[in-house]
């Protein structure tokens, strides 16, 4: 096994008091790339940063456990999506799920690995945003605060691609009982 993508001693360490400003300084110090930001437009950076600090405040996961120098925001985001499953995957007791994440992995590998684990419970899981939503919905406290889709925050993001999940609860109902009067807003 190579180097783990997570610093497991930090992932549930929330001792230090942190502000959004501290988190922003940390992100900048680490030179995280691919977050859309210009000298006058800080909206994406502010939203990206807000998600990470909210994870910290809600004791979901400490971003310091997975942010590395010069990393791409897309990789960061996928690691974050795994990291916030710390309690759901019982990381405190046995962090096998987290240990398996390799530091060399890109977005594809992280998603594939997460899907392979989730598939043992949800047979058609392929880590689409709406599927991950359900993991978050049942596995994470204060799930309403967790933003999952982030396409618009990335500098190389596709602005045409919707940055939302549609209505996963209604979509699930439709999957169970399809009716002509409703069509899921996102890819099934």
């Amino acid at each position: 096994m190579g180097e783990c993508a997570f610093n497991l001693s930090l992932i549930a360490d929330f001792e230090k008091s942190m502000t959004a400003e501290d988190m922003a300084d940390f992100l900048r110090e680490k030179h995280v790339t691919n977050i859309y930001e210009t000298s006058t437009d800080h909206e994406c950076f502010a939203n990206f940063n807000a998600e990470l600090i909210k994870d910290y405040w809600a004791c979901r996961a400490n971003p310091a456990s997975y942010i590395r120098d010069g990393m791409n925001a897309r990789v960061l985001w996928e690691l974050r999506k795994s990291a916030i499953l710390w309690h759901f995957m019982d990381g405190e007791k046995d962090p096998w799920f987290f240990e398996a994440h390799q530091a060399t992995w890109g977005v594809k590998e992280i998603k594939e690995y997460r899907a392979s684990v989730m598939r043992t419970k949800f047979i058609d899981y392929v880590d689409r945003d709406w599927q991950y939503f359900w993991v978050v919905r049942f596995g994470i406290k204060d799930w309403q605060d967790v933003r999952i889709a982030a396409e618009l925050l990335f500098a190389d993001g596709d602005t045409e691609k919707p940055d939302e999940l549609g209505d996963p609860i209604r979509d699930l109902a439709w999957r169970l009982v399809p009716v002509d009067s409703y069509k899921p807003k996102i890819e099934v």
């Binding site: 502000t19 959004a20 400003e21 988190m23 922003a24 800080h42 950076f45 502010a46 939203n47 940063n49 807000a50 998600e51 600090i53 909210k54 405040w57």
Partner: peptide, 11 residues
């Protein structure tokens, strides 16, 4: 306050 959006002290 939405402190999560305060990425800079001037906000």
């Amino acid at each position: 306050e939405d402190a999560s959006q305060k990425y800079d002290k001037k906000i």
